[in-house]
Design a protein around this nucleic acid. Structure first.
Length: 919
RNA sequence: GGGUGCUUAGCUCAGCUGGUAGAGCGUCGCCCUUACAAGGCGAAUGUCGCAGGUUCGAUCCCUGCAGCACCCACCA
C-alpha cells in the first residue's frame, strides 16, 4: 500500500466492481427497505444539494443493505417541464428561432434529443459519488410506463370528480404564456406607487377618490367599493360612476373586504385582474372585463387606442392622460408585493382562462390525518407544523400548463366543445360511446410536472400494474428531502399515495437542511460561490474554477467581483479530496439545523481522516499480514479494551443511523477511529507485537484483534465512506476470516454480548491516565521525548503496583520512561515533578532534568484550576437545599469531588514547598 | 399580518429526558519516535444573545425582549 491514500485511482475501479457484480439490486429475504430518489431534472447537473442528499440516501441504503434488509434505492429523473423547455427554447433563440418556428412536434423531438444528449450527466455524477442505486430500475417521468400512470391517475381523479375544468383567475406568466400554480409564484417586495385617482360621478355631481397601485387596470374596472360601515360613503351604494378613459359607467358597491383605513377607503374593483376583486365580483354579479392579452399587452376589451400596448407602457400613458385630465389627486411612494414566476422571473398577472384543476380538499383531509395519527412521521418532528399549516389552507391545484414539454392532458373535445377523458383517444371514444367518425381534438395543454412527481413512489414501482415490487416496497421506508419542496412534492405524494394505493407513500420523511457556503450564504451562480461537488472530489485549478464561475452569468458585470473573491478564497484552486472525504463531510454536516454551512476546511480534515484510516490499515497489514503459526490465543487487556470500545461505538453509530443523526454517527466513528483505535490501541499493540518478552499466544490474540477490529471498523464506516473501506477491506477482510466479493454485502456490525468490559476499561483508563500524567510533565517542562527517565511511585496502593506490573511494557513505551520503582517505606521522596493518579503520586525526579522555575509555574497553574473547581463544589454542598433535595448519588459524587480536590491541593502544596526549597 | 427556526471557544457546529461546557478547523509550544508531517505529544481559549421565572441546581424547561434567517398570506 502507498504511504498516502490517493482516492482518484481507487474510486472508479471500486464502483465498477460493485456495478458489474450487480450488488445494487435488492437481494436476500430480509424485510423490505426502500427509498425513492427525489428525481433530479433530467438535463440538469448535480449540485451540492444533490450530492448531500445522495450521500444521506446512499448511507441509509448501504446501512440497511448490510443490516440484512432487502434494500432498493430507486433511481430516476424528472422531465421538469418548464425548466427543460426553457433551456431548449434558449438554445433555439440563440439560433434566432422560437419554438413556434419548429412547431409542437419538431420542438418536442428536439427536447427529446437534448434529453438523450445531456440526460446521462447526473447518472455519471451519481456514480462518482458512489450512489448504490439499482440502475436496472432507472426511470424517467416521461417513460411510457410513467405516462401510463399519469393518464390513469388523471382519469380516475376525473371520474371521481376530483379533477375539473374551470374558467377562473389563474396566475398567468405572460412571458412563458402559461398558467402556474400558487406554489410557483414568488412574492417579491418592491417599491411602487399608490395613485389616488378621481372617479367622477356619472351625473357630473362631484367625484370620489380611489387609491390603486395598478392604474392601468382601471380599464377593466367593474365597480368602486367601500366598506358597508364606512360613514363617509353612506348612501352612495348604487351611485353610478363615469369611468375615466373607458367611456363606461360602473356602480358603487358596499363590501366587507374593503379596509376603510387604507387609502381613501374606496377600492376600484377589477374582477378580471385581481384575485380579491374576482371574489367581490362574484358576490355582486359584476362583469369580468379582461383587458389584457396573453402577453400582458392591452387587448380587445380595452378601448381601441390602447390595443397592443404593453401593460407597463399602458400604465405610464394612462397616468399621463389622467393627470392631463386633472384626475390624479396625488401619488405616494408605496411598498408592495409583486408576484413573479419562479422560473421566468416575469411579473405575473391574475388572468382569466380555462384550466384544469384538482379539487384538493377531499385529498388533503386524509393526508392531514396520516400525519396526525403517526402513519407518517416527519424528522425532525416539527416539520409537521409547516405541513399542517399549508394543508389546512390549501386551495385547488391548477394542473394544466400551456407548454409543449410534458404529459399531454388525456382529454379530447368534440366539435360542440364537449370534453371526453380517456387513456387514449380510442379509450375516450369507447368510454363515451362516440362514433368513430366524430372528430375529436386533444387538449393542447400538458400537466404540471409535479403531477407526475406526485405519483413517483408508486409509478416507479410499476403502478398501475400490480407488480411484485409494488407489493413489496410500497409503502417505501423513508423520503429524504429538503424542506423547500414539502408543499410541491411531499404533500402531493401523500395525497396521491393515499388516494391510489390506499396507504401512505412512505413512513418517514427525513427533512434535511440546505447546503450553503462557508458564510451561510445560499449558493448561486450570481453570487459566484457555487462549488461543483465533483470539483471537490477531483480537484480543480484556480483558472478553471474562475472560468467556470464567470461564464454564463446572467449579469456579466458581476464577473470581476466574483473573480476577485474566488482568487482570494482559493488561491491554489481546490485540491482533489476524493469522494469519501466529501461524503464524510456531508454526513457530519447533517445536523438538525436548516442551514448547513459548507466549509472546505472540513473536507480537508476528513480527507486527513481517510489518510489516517489508510495508514492504520497499512500498519495493521504490516504487523498482521504475515501468516503466524496456529496456536492458542490470549487477549491482552488492550485487546479486550478496544473490543469493548468498538462495541460502544457500534451502538452509537447505529443509534445515529436509526435517528437520522448522521452527524453523530460520523462523529462517533471518527472519534473511535482516531482517538481510540489509532492513538491508543495501535500503540498498545506495538508493545505487544514488538516486545521480545511477550508470549506467542498473546501475540496471536493481538494480531487477531488488530485484524478483527479494523475489519469491523471498515464495515462500520462503509455506509459513509464506501470507497476506501471497500479498498482496504479487500485485503483485510480475508485475513479477518471473512469471505465475499465486497464489503457491501457483509453484515453491519452489531453490539455483541460480552464485548463490553467495564473492568478492563477502568484498568486501561488507569494506564492511559498514567501515561498522560507523565506526558504532561514532559510537555510542560519541555523535556524532549528522546530523554527517558526513571520514575518513583509514592503512595502506591497494591492495585497500582499490580497494574503497573501488568502494563509496564506499554507504560515504558508510551510514557517514554526507563522504569519506575516504588518508594520504600520511610524513604524520603526525591525532588521531583509529580503527576497525581488518585492517591498515587508519579514522581519525575528533577535531578538534571527539570527547571525549578517552570515546575513551580506549572504547579501554580494547576493549583488555581483546582481551587476554582473546589470553590464551586464547596458552594454547592454548603447549600442545605442542594443536600436535601438533590438525588443522593449526585450529592455523594459532589462530596467525593471535594475530597479529591482537597487531597490534590494538599499534595500540590507539599510539592510546591519541596521544589521551592531547591532554590 | 400569521408561522417556523437560529443565537454555545477566533470560525463552523455538537451538547441525548436539567447535575463538573465538547469536537473539527484555526492559534501557541516541543518533536521527521520505522502506520500516518494529510502526522505525534502537550497547551491556551467560553458572563452558553439579554432580562425575568421555575428548581437545591438552568446552555437545557417557562415567559418576555433583542438580533438574524426562512416560509406562508388577497390589503387595493
Amino acid at each position: 500500500m502507498d504511504k498516502t491514500y490517493s482516492p482518484g485511482e481507487i474510486e472508479a475501479r471500486v464502483y465498477r466492481l460493485w456495478e458489474t457484480n450487480g450488488l445494487f439490486a435488492p437481494a436476500g429475504d430480509g424485510s423490505p427497505y426502500c427509498i425513492v430518489i427525489p428525481p433530479p431534472n433530467v438535463t440538469g447537473t448535480l449540485h451540492m444539494g444533490h450530492a448531500f442528499q445522495d450521500t444521506i440516501m446512499d448511507a441509509l441504503t448501504r446501512f440497511h443493505r448490510m443490516a440484512g434488509d432487502r434494500t432498493l434505492w430507486q433511481p430516476g429523473a424528472d422531465h421538469a417541464g418548464i425548466a427543460t423547455q426553457m433551456v431548449v427554447e434558449r438554445q433555439l433563440n440563440a439560433q434566432g428561432l422560437t419554438r413556434h418556428d419548429l412547431g409542437r412536434e419538431r420542438f418536442t423531438e428536439r427536447v427529446w434529443q437534448w434529453k438523450e444528449q445531456s440526460g446521462g450527466a447526473i447518472a455519471r455524477q451519481m456514480r462518482r459519488l458512489g450512489a448504490s442505486v439499482d440502475w436496472s430500475r432507472d426511470r424517467f417521468t416521461m417513460d411510457p410506463g410513467m405516462s401510463q400512470a399519469v393518464q390513469e391517475a388523471f382519469l380516475r381523479l376525473h371520474d371521481e370528480g376530483l379533477i375539473y375544468r374551470g374558467k377562473r383567475l389563474v396566475n398567468w406568466d405572460p412571458v412563458l404564456k402559461t398558467a402556474l400554480s400558487d406554489l410557483e409564484v414568488q412574492s417579491e417586495e418592491a417599491d411602487g406607487h399608490l395613485w389616488h385617482i378621481r372617479y367622477p360621478f356619472a351625473d357630473g355631481q362631484g367625484h370620489v377618490t380611489v387609491a390603486t397601485t395598478r392604474p392601468e387596470t382601471l380599464l377593466g374596472d367593474a365597480a368602486v367599493a367601500f366598506h358597508p360601515g364606512d360613514e363617509r360613503y353612506r348612501g352612495l351604494e348604487g351611485r353610478r360612476i363615469a369611468l375615466p378613459l373607458a367611456d363606461r359607467e360602473i356602480p358603487m358597491i358596499a363590501d366587507d373586504f374593503v379596509d376603510p383605513a387604507f387609502g381613501s377607503g374606496l377600492v376600484k374593483v377589477t374582477p378580471a385582474h385581481d384575485f380579491n376583486d374576482y371574489e367581490v365580483g362574484q358576490r355582486h354579479g359584476l362583469p369580468l372585463i379582461n383587458v389584457l392579452a396573453a402577453d400582458a399587452k392591452l387587448g380587445d376589451a380595452a378601448p381601441a387606442r390602447y390595443h397592443g400596448l404593453d401593460r407597463f407602457d399602458a400604465r405610464t400613458r394612462i397616468v399621463g392622460e389622467l393627470e392631463a385630465a386633472g384626475l390624479v389627486e396625488k401619488v405616494e411612494p408605496h411598498r408592495l408585493v409583486i408576484p413573479k414566476g419562479d422560473r421566468s422571473g416575469a411579473v405575473l398577472e391574475p388572468w382569466l382562462t380555462d384550466q384544469w384543476y384538482v379539487r384538493i380538499a377531499p385529498l388533503a383531509e386524509p393526508a392531514i390525518r396520516a400525519v396526525q395519527d403517526g402513519r407518517i412521521r416527519f424528522v425532525p418532528a416539527n416539520w409537521d407544523r409547516t405541513y399542517f399549516e399549508w394543508m389546512r389552507n390549501i386551495k385547488d391545484w391548477c394542473i394544466s400548463r400551456q407548454l409543449w414539454w410534458g404529459h399531454r392532458i388525456p382529454a379530447w373535445y368534440g366539435p360542440d366543445g364537449a370534453v371526453y377523458v380517456g387513456r387514449s383517444e380510442a379509450d375516450a371514444r369507447a368510454r363515451a360511446g362516440l362514433p368513430a367518425d366524430l372528430p375529436l381534438v386533444q387538449d393542447e395543454d400538458v400537466l404540471d410536472t409535479w403531477f407526475s412527481s406526485a405519483l413517483w413512489p408508486f409509478s416507479t414501482l410499476g403502478w398501475p400494474g400490480d407488480t411484485p415490487e409494488l407489493r413489496r416496497f410500497y409503502p417505501t421506508s423513508v423520503l429524504v428531502t429538503g424542506f423547500d419542496i414539502i408543499f410541491f412534492w411531499v404533500a402531493r405524494m401523500i395525497m396521491m399515495g393515499l388516494r391510489f394505493m390506499v396507504d401512505v407513500p412512505f413512513r418517514e420523511v427525513y427533512v434535511h437542511g440546505l447546503i450553503r457556503d462557508h458564510e451561510g450564504q445560499k449558493m448561486s451562480k450570481s453570487k459566484g460561490n457555487v462549488i461543483d461537488p465533483l470539483d471537490i472530489v477531483d480537484g480543480i485549478g484556480l483558472e478553471e474554477l474562475v472560468a467556470k464561475r464567470v461564464t454564463g452569468l446572467m449579469q456579466p458585470k458581476l464577473a470581476p467581483a466574483i473573480e476577485r473573491s474566488t482568487r482570494k478564497q482559493y488561491p491554489h484552486g481546490i485540491a482533489p479530496y476524493g469522494t469519501d472525504a466529501l461524503r464524510f463531510t456531508f454526513a457530519s454536516l447533517a445536523t438538525q439545523s436548516r442551514d448547513l454551512s459548507f466549509d472546505l476546511g472540513r473536507v480537508e480534515g476528513y480527507r486527513n481522516f481517510c489518510n489516517k484510516l489508510w495508514n492504520a490499515a497499512r500498519f495493521v497489514l504490516m504487523t498482521a499480514e504475515s501468516p503466524v503459526e496456529a496456536g492458542p490465543e490470549t487477549l491482552s487487556p488492550y485487546d479486550r479494551w478496544i473490543r469493548s470500545r468498538l462495541d460502544a461505538t457500534v451502538a452509537a453509530v447505529r443509534d445515529g443511523f436509526a435517528g437520522y443523526r448522521f452527524d453523530l454517527a460520523a462523529q462517533a466513528a471518527y472519534e473511535f477511529t482516531w482517538y481510540e483505535f489509532c492513538d491508543w490501541y495501535l500503540e498498545f499493540s506495538k508493545t505487544v507485537m514488538q516486545s521480545p518478552d511477550v508470549g506467542a499466544d498473546q501475540r496471536r490474540g493481538t494480531r487477531r484483534t488488530l485484524l478483527e477490529t479494523l475489519e469491523a471498523l471498515l464495515r462500520l464506516l462503509h455506509p459513509l465512506m464506501p470507497f476506501i473501506t471497500e479498498e482496504i477491506w479487500q485485503r483485510v477482510g480475508p485475513l479477518a476470516g471473512r469471505t465475499g466479493d465486497s464489503i457491501m454485502r457483509q453484515p453491519y456490525p452489531s453490539v455483541l454480548p460480552g464485548a463490553a468490559a467495564p473492568e478492563v476499561e477502568s484498568e486501561v483508563r488507569w494506564v492511559m491516565d498514567f501515561i498522560l500524567g507523565v506526558r504532561r510533565i514532559r510537555g510542560e517542562l519541555d523535556i524532549a521525548p528522546s530523554v527517558p527517565f526513571e520514575l518513583r511511585l509514592q503512595n502506591a496502593a497494591p492495585l497500582d503496583l499490580e497494574r503497573y506490573a501488568r502494563n509496564e511494557g506499554a507504560l515504558r513505551r508510551l510514557a517514554g520512561i526507563a522504569g519506575a520503582t516504588p518508594l520504600a517505606a520511610g524513604e524520603p521522596a526525591p525532588q521531583a515533578a509529580a503527576a497525581l493518579l488518585g492517591d498515587l503520586r508519579i514522581l519525575v525526579p528533577m535531578a538534571g532534568l527539570i527547571d525549578v522555575g517552570s515546575e513551580l509555574a506549572r504547579l501554580d497553574r494547576r493549583r488555581s484550576k483546582i481551587e476554582q473547581e473546589l470553590a464551586r463544589a464547596d458552594a454547592k454542598l454548603g447549600n442545605e437545599k442542594f443536600v436535601r433535595n438533590a438525588p443522593a448519588a449526585v450529592v455523594t459524587q459532589e462530596r467525593e469531588r471535594v475530597l479529591e480536590f482537597k487531597r490534590e491541593l494538599a499534595q500540590l502544596a507539599e510539592q510546591y514547598e519541596r521544589v521551592a526549597s531547591l532554590r
